[in-house]
Design a binder for these strands. Structure first.
Length: 907
RNA sequence: GCGAGGGUUGCAGAGUCUGGCCAAAUGCGCAGGACUUAAGAUCCUGUCUCUUAGUGAGUCCGGGGGUUCGAAUCCCCUCCCUCGCACCA
């Protein structure tokens, strides 16, 4: 077991005792609400959780150190099927199972040292929590946002319950992957479609959401602007029998309609064929279509099937009589369940028309040529010029679109319509472990909501978990109730709510979980909401994130808060994979976070997971990487073994500082700037990389030269800043080191260092690099010659640059034209060989003449530095060093026979 | 088909917005060295090619072309990969 593990325990205890992470609303402070998607307590934390919380915690800690009043809570999404399934299997109450899971997850979360305000913990299984699910449901019922209706619904045979559309993926249950059946049932719905427009429109406000998620939501909501057209339906003789509506976005193609198809489920299909020769065939067809699963029906490249139903319709634009068909490619759920077919300009209609030999009529021609209906091998769906369209001929189809819509409206043939793919949210579940829907059925009064004062409707305990049917129906008492209106016997609703309801507003509850008399305490919610940074998996791109947005808007309209959108900024973390595959029990490639924590300590686990990949990218788990993180922490901790002194004051930087000191201080401030920027863009892995770089440089600083020459108070200054900056990643180690060097208080709440441009001394850094290079040059010379030379000639490197600057300066005084200067400078024999950098130097001069003298100054300073360090280096290597500037070197060159720009010459 | 994101030096992965300080961060891997009886661990150095004194030369960021004094970075064309959605009328 690692020392780090024990060390972490110590600090976790101290944090807890001092309640250092407790948050309180305070209007005088700028707030920051950082939130991770609260977990479903399924037993143990997995690596994905650890990643999620490590990202969130590092950020929350950073923001706290930046001076924000941070709200960073944790809770549990405690209702759900796994608990109930465990109950059926193991004869243990779902509540007990869930509370056990919560306890073990909480323990692990505490072991990892996340800086949650544990006083705000919530769990959706608490009656004081789910009471408000029920309350808002009755509020929505009263506003007509919750309603009960019979509908064709998705039934999951695996989970024995219905599913919302959002919970069906590829025709399968999102949870258990069973194939979903269609059933007709009376169910409760929430009218999310009332908010469809706003949910779509407000996506534009979410600047700091991943584009991907916004697009997914946009597609899911699926808004289409078009027109609903009405057609008279006639029999063979042309006698009017009924009418049919269709929705289209391509009103510009109405002159090309050649037939119309109904979805198989469309009730008119049966009605119109009743008693005709077509009745049997149509019924048979419908039966065949309904037998197919969703997967079969929507399979890629699936051939379209249909039959003629013996009826016709009149196209009001052309007065033509066209046939009515029934086909499997029309969807009953979308639009009106009927499609006007324009085979020439819609690929699906085209395929169908080809198969059943239906007419194809071109009404839009491309710009470059005319289409021939006979020769087309695919539909022409692009824009072009209208033909065969009466008064619209010759117009561009986009222009004609609006005119045709207007015409349809004037003549009463159709109405402009906006259609959504989004359907109302089906929230009934025939399961026990959820929030009971607070509704009563009275024979006299009908459906009656449970009055507010009787909430919560508690889950009954006298139930049996058999695995068949809804356990709530087995309760002797639960269903019997009284009608609050007439007092008569009333039956209580036994369906429970979809657990996504719980997670649709929990972020409000965190703002004041203690408050029991309202759903949210407005003042607190107004201070803390919206969530400033939300972090979770991409799998909730539609489900949870759409529902939460919907609830937030409903709550706003109920006057519970003022926010339009719950999450200002969203981060979708990437998956954790191992050996090229997603971690899963079935593949046996899982990693238990507890093993890492006990072996290397929580800081290592967190640091590795943050360092291994950027938060939104896939993370490939490898054990060597874990070890590397551990080694790095060791290296950092060893820094405290160096000598150090208090008393360094950056505000009054002492004159006596060497170039090495100034250089490393500059490096520190560059790193401060970099890490601050990287944190703000949630690039923790790069921030850690920058810290590693800094640690490398600090090590070089303390060990270069004779090894003890570093400034001890500068070193302490560096170390303190390093500890502060590493504390969001490795908080326990940071606290330990902070204490070791004798500082008081928690570094976890110490203020984040401020970047100071003026402390970056570029000249000092350049000089420092120079000396470093000379030193390693001498070392390699000594190594190669084996004998230690007593004397050395040192040619000043880069002195040519100095000459170059002087030359450029001279030319610059004559002309400011880049090309001229370039030409003249390049023609100078001493300069030509350095052509690549010449243009850069000239350009920097031309672009920014005021900076120019600085360049020359820095060159002079370099030369001075070398001269100043001559004796030091001489002592270090026990030799005499003679300095020769390159401009003087030319004459020596002849003597030595060496190349033109040597750095070192030995005697 | 529609939409989004990518292709960088052995691997992972920065750099691209804002062109030059980029042979290109950081880590892994690999090589050499120190320590050790030894292995491991740890530490140091190196790690595109050439150059056995260089702050040197050459080549390089999927492929091709262009703009520029200068391109991994900007523009155009092209090839390849990944991920979402998908008969939505």
């Amino acid at each position: 077991m690692s020392d780090y593990y024990e060390m972490a325990k110590k600090w976790q205890k101290r944090w807890e005792e001092s309640k250092v992470f407790k948050s309180k609303a305070d209007k005088s402070k700028k707030k920051f609400y950082c939130l991770e998607m609260y977990p479903y307590p399924s037993g143990k934390l997995h690596i994905g959780h650890v990643r999620n919380y490590s990202i969130g915690d590092s950020y929350a800690r950073y923001k706290r150190m930046k001076g924000f009043n941070v709200l960073y809570p944790m809770g549990y999404d405690a209702f759900g099927l796994p608990a109930e399934n465990a109950a059926i299997k193991n004869k243990i109450h779902p509540g007990e199972w869930t509370l056990d899971s919560m306890a073990s997850m909480r323990k692990q979360q505490k072991e990892l040292g996340f800086s949650y305000d544990w006083d705000r913990e919530i769990a959706s299984l608490q009656p004081e929590y789910y009471k408000w699910n029920q309350w808002i449901f009755t509020q929505m019922y009263k506003k007509g946002l919750a309603y009960r209706k019979a509908a064709s619904i998705n039934w999951c045979p695996g989970c024995n319950t219905v599913l919302a559309n959002e919970q069906v993926e590829d025709g399968k249950c999102w949870r258990c992957k069973s194939e979903v059946d269609q059933k007709k049932l009376e169910q409760w719905f929430l009218k999310i479609t009332d908010y469809a427009d706003e949910l779509l429109k407000d996506l534009d406000k979410l600047d700091e959401w991943p584009e991907k998620v916004k697009i997914m939501q946009k597609n899911w909501i699926g808004r289409s602007e078009g027109v609903t057209l009405k057609f008279d339906v006639v029999d063979e003789n042309g006698t009017n029998i009924d009418e049919i509506e269709t929705f289209t976005t391509r009103a510009d193609t109405v002159y090309g309609i050649t037939y119309l198809v109904l979805a198989a489920e469309h009730p008119k299909a049966i009605e119109w064929t009743k008693g005709t020769e077509y009745e049997e065939k149509v019924k048979e067809f419908i039966k065949k279509v309904k037998k197919q699963t969703i997967i079969e029906r929507t399979a890629e490249g699936k051939e379209k099937n249909g039959i003629f139903i013996g009826k016709y319709f009149i196209n009001p634009f052309t007065s033509e009589k066209c046939p009515l068909w029934i086909a499997d490619y029309a969807l009953y759920e979308y639009g009106t369940g009927a499609v006007m077919a324009v085979p020439a300009h819609d690929q699906r209609d085209f395929e169908f028309a080809k198969k059943y030999d239906l007419p194809i009529k071109v009404v839009i021609n491309p710009d470059s040529f005319d289409l021939d209906a006979q020769k087309m091998n695919r539909a022409y769906a692009e824009d072009g010029t209208m033909v065969n369209s009466q008064g619209f001929n010759g117009m561009h189809n986009r222009d004609a679109l609006d005119d045709i819509k207007k015409l349809a409206k004037e003549k009463g043939w159709g109405e402009p319509t906006i259609n959504f793919k989004l359907k109302d949210w089906l929230i009934s579940r025939q399961r026990y472990w959820g929030t009971p829907i607070p509704m009563l059925y009275c024979d006299k009064c009908g459906i009656v909501p449970v009055p507010d004062e009787e909430l919560p409707v508690m889950l009954p305990e006298d139930v049996e978990f058999t695995g068949h049917g809804n356990p709530l129906t087995t309760s002797k008492t639960f269903q019997h109730s009284k009608c609050p209106l007439c007092g008569a016997q009333a039956r209580r609703e036994t369906d429970t709510m979809d657990t996504f309801i719980d997670s649709s507003w929990y972020f409000f509850r965190f703002t004041n979980p203690e408050h029991h008399s309202d759903m949210v305490e407005k003042e607190e919610a107004d201070y803390w909401m919206p969530v400033d940074q939300y972090i979770g998996g991409i799998e909730h791109a539609i489900l949870h994130l759409l529902y939460a947005r919907f609830f937030t808007k409903v709550m706003r309209d109920l006057g519970l808060s003022h926010v339009d959108e719950p999450f200002s900024r969203l981060l979708c973390q990437g998956m954790v994979i191992k050996d090229g595959a997603k971690m899963s029990k079935s593949l046996g490639n899982t990693v238990d976070p507890s093993d890492i924590i006990t072996k290397y300590g929580p800081d290592t686990a967190r640091l590795f997971i943050l360092f291994a990949a950027l938060p939104e990218k896939e993370l490939d788990w490898n054990d060597q990487g874990v070890h590397a993180a551990y080694k790095f922490l060791n290296r950092v901790q060893r820094l405290t073994e160096n000598d150090m002194e208090r008393g360094f004051n950056i505000e009054q930087m002492p004159e006596s500082l060497t170039n090495a000191d100034r250089s490393i201080i500059g490096k520190l401030h560059k790193t401060i700037k970099k890490i601050t920027r990287l944190f703000d863009t949630m690039s923790q892995s790069l921030a850690i990389g920058a810290l590693m770089e800094l640690v490398n440089d600090i090590n070089k600083y303390t060990t270069s030269g004779s090894g003890t020459s570093y400034n001890k108070s500068v070193f302490r200054y560096l170390l303190e800043n390093l500890i502060i900056m590493i504390s969001p990643f490795a908080p326990h180690l940071a606290e330990e080191m902070w204490e070791t060097i004798g500082n008081e208080g928690f570094v976890s709440v110490y203020q984040w260092p401020e970047f100071k441009e003026e402390y970056i001394d570029k000249e000092a850094q350049a000089c420092e690099d120079l000396i470093h290079n000379i030193r390693s040059g001498i070392q390699s010379v000594q190594k190669l010659t084996e004998i230690k030379p007593k004397q050395m000639k040192l040619f000043i490197p880069d002195a040519w640059k100095y000459d170059l600057y002087k030359l450029v300066a001279q030319k610059f005084s004559e002309t400011h034209d880049f090309q001229t200067i370039m030409k003249e400078v390049m023609s100078d024999p001493g300069i030509r060989s350095h052509g690549t950098q010449v243009s850069q130097i000239i350009n920097s001069v031309v672009k920014n003449p005021s900076k120019f003298p600085k360049h020359v100054l820095s060159m002079e300073k370099e030369i001075q530095t070398i001269e100043e360090n001559r004796d030091l280096l001489g002592q270090e290597f026990d030799m005499e060093i003679e300095i020769i500037k390159e401009s003087d070197a030319e004459e020596n060159k002849a003597k030595s026979g060496l190349p033109s720009r040597p750095a070192f010459i030995l005697y």
